[in-house]
Design a protein around this nucleic acid. Sequence first.
DNA 1: TGGCATTAGTTATATTTGGAAACTATTTGA
DNA 2: TCAAATAGTTTCCAAATATAACTAATGCCA
Lengths: 151, 151
Amino acid sequence: MPKTNRSNAASDVLDTVPMIMRIIRRNFRARRDPDLTLPEFRALAFINRNPDCALNEVAEFVGVEAPAASKLVESLVQRGLATRQADAADRRRVQIRVLPKGETSIQLVREHTREFLNEQLAHLSPSEQATVTEAMHILKDAFSNKPPAKE
Amino acid sequence: MPKTNRSNAASDVLDTVPMIMRIIRRNFRARRDPDLTLPEFRALAFINRNPDCALNEVAEFVGVEAPAASKLVESLVQRGLATRQADAADRRRVQIRVLPKGETSIQLVREHTREFLNEQLAHLSPSEQATVTEAMHILKDAFSNKPPAKE
DNA sequence: TGGCATTAGTTATATTTGGAAACTATTTGA
DNA sequence: TCAAATAGTTTCCAAATATAACTAATGCCA
């Protein structure tokens, strides 16, 4: 049985991370590329992180069924943001990739958000910034070392 | 204005927070109350944080227009998760509240997520946990002290 | 090898969802 | 007191999504 209480890092993460995420999302909504819906942006970002990914992976990540993902990717392809080609090894699969145009589109948004966060964190002291940086690295390791929680 | 930070806390936050959020959301999706959609859950959580809030506040938070929010809240009310009563001071407004049933529904999900995070962070050393906790408090302050992003 | 089951993705159809506009009720304010 | 404004709801329509059916490719194993 897992121990509870104390000042519990998990509770702090659960309080704080969604809060920051809401703020990021609000900022995103205000500044987003007007002809890129949020699911489209999310799909594009996922594909960018996972080059040559399959359609069902995109579907799972965005949280929609295969047909919706198919149309979503289709529209990205139509607009020259991504490509979709049959996998040579298994010709049922498609390999989806982000094209330079799509990449710049993502990075633009990302840069906006980064600047926004920078403003928000500008008033922190150097030691506070160092603590934040250190914590982020700790968390990144903690979560990427054990990505899937099996059951 | 202090530009150009070396190891840039903002970049670290931007790398890490969305990643954790994706993991939280995947966990949520796997365990969520099957008859509570994600917008419904988000609305309920918002109402819980903001008792007696108005409809347009819910709408803005969830990111939909008023009619959609109206239907959403209606469905919460129908299922006994929330109440909606006219504000005595201004009878055009509604005051929305979470009912005990809705509250337990939220807290159940929250508790699941907290346990999940706890597992993920269980392997951190006490000093690492302390760093995380400290960073979370720093970030919470940084973001709640300056909620509106000026231009 | 042949043939059947499975898998990935697309197309077709139906349902649901969400938005704009119109409407009701209430408040403001001139 | 009446016009304008505001909060929310209802109506109606367009867009988004799911389910089901379909195509094509692969795996399996007899």
